[in-house]
Simulated scan of single mutants.
Amino acid sequence: MSVRAKIIVVDDELHIESLIKQVFRKKIREGDYEFIFAANGIDALAKLDQYGDVDLALSDINMPEMDGLSLLEKLIERNPVLKVVMISAYGDMQNVRTAMNRGAFDFITKPIVPADLEATVEKTLRYVARLKSAIKLEQELSIARTVQLGLLPNGCMSSNDFEVSGFCEPAQSIGGDYYDIIQLSHAKFGIAVADASGKGVSAAIYMTLIKGLLHANATVEHSPKEVLIKINTLLHRIIKRGSFVSMIYAVMDTSTGEFSYARAGHLPPILVSEEDDVREVPLRAKGMALGLANSAAFAFTIDEASYTLKHGDALVLYTDGFIEARNPRGEEYGMERLQQAAFVHCLNSTATDMVRAIVNDVKAFAGNAPQHDDMAMVAIKSRTQR
Rank of each mutant, 00 (worst) to 15 (best):
M252Y: 08
K240P: 01
H186R: 15
A187S: 15
L267N: 15
V164E: 07
G166R: 07
V245Y: 02
A204M: 10
R241E: 15
T233C: 02
D161G: 00
L271R: 01
I239H: 07
L234R: 03
S197E: 08
F162G: 02
A262R: 05
I191T: 02
K211Q: 15
M207T: 14
A203Q: 04
G257D: 15
Q183H: 09
L184Q: 05
L214I: 11
A218D: 03
A218V: 07
Q183I: 14
G166Y: 07
L271K: 01
A203V: 06
Q172R: 15
K240E: 15
L228S: 02
L228C: 03
S243F: 10
G212A: 12
V272F: 14
S173E: 15
A204N: 08
E275F: 04
L235T: 09
A196M: 08
S165G: 08
I182A: 09
R263W: 10
D161S: 04
G175R: 11
Y249E: 11
D177C: 09
E226T: 00
F189S: 04
L209A: 07
P170E: 14
Y178T: 09
A262M: 09
V201A: 14
R263C: 14
Q172G: 11
S243E: 15
I231G: 05
Y261D: 03
R263L: 15
A262H: 08
E221T: 06
S273V: 10
R237Q: 10
S165T: 07
Y249K: 06
I270D: 01
I229A: 05
S243P: 00
V227C: 03
V272R: 07
L267C: 13
I181Y: 02
L234A: 06
V251W: 03
A264S: 12
S202M: 07
L213A: 12
D161Q: 07
A218I: 02
